Amino acid sequence: MAERADAARNRQAILQAADKLLRDHEPGHISLDQVAATAGVGKGTVFRRFGSRTGLFQELLAERAARLGAAVESGPPPLGPGGPPGQRLLAFVDELALLAAQNIRLIAAHERACGADPHSDPTYQRWHRHLRGLLSELRPDADADFLAHIVLGGYNGELVRRITASGGVPRLRIAVRDLAQRVGDVD
């Protein structure tokens, strides 16, 4: 069923409002009341569409991660299918580092909102499945499930903030690439 035009406009307005508030305020200081007021909609509209802060930040992160997801699923190698797993792993962690660095406040807000169970987030699960699959190919003898969680731990919002504050995106990319090479036993 297609989304109604007014619902689509409200959804975009809410996501843009959340994005603006994340640029202007610390993630812990953003309420759904503020999002609704900034978007020019009622608080009930935000709740009906997203259910909670968790739902709102999950959707905003999913929207930001959509390009990366499409590249992984159907883009050209080395990020997309058909490339050697080691090259795909390194291409993926490079792109994820860029996404994390560009969205530090969103990731921090998302982590706070998902506090009790961040591993159940659909975007996290998607990234984890991809990493687990690549690591299973590279290291069939290892616990690829655990190793995928370890690699994704390198994208913790506060850690990304600290690392990029003293070395920028290049430091983050080098650090997660080094971790992925060691975990995946990639040359």
Rank of each mutant, 00 (worst) to 15 (best):
P122F: 04
A175P: 00
R139L: 09
R129M: 06
G157W: 01
L96S: 02
R162L: 13
R173P: 00
N156V: 06
H130Y: 06
R105N: 06
P118S: 05
A144D: 00
A175D: 01
R162S: 07
V160Y: 01
I107H: 02
D145T: 10
L147I: 08
P140W: 10
R173G: 00
D143R: 15
Q125L: 13
N103R: 07
P140F: 07
A144E: 00
T123K: 10
D185S: 12
R182F: 08
A100Y: 02
H149S: 02
R171W: 01
R177S: 09
A175C: 02
G154V: 05
D143K: 15
P122Y: 07
G115A: 12
L152T: 07
R162V: 03
A97C: 07
V151G: 02
V169I: 14
D185C: 11
Q125F: 07
R126C: 01
H110L: 11
D178I: 13
H130C: 10
N103H: 11
F146Q: 08
A180R: 14
Q125N: 01
T164N: 01
C114S: 09
S166N: 11
S166I: 13
E111G: 10
L152I: 11
H110M: 07
H149P: 00
L98T: 05
P140V: 14
N156H: 12
R132D: 00
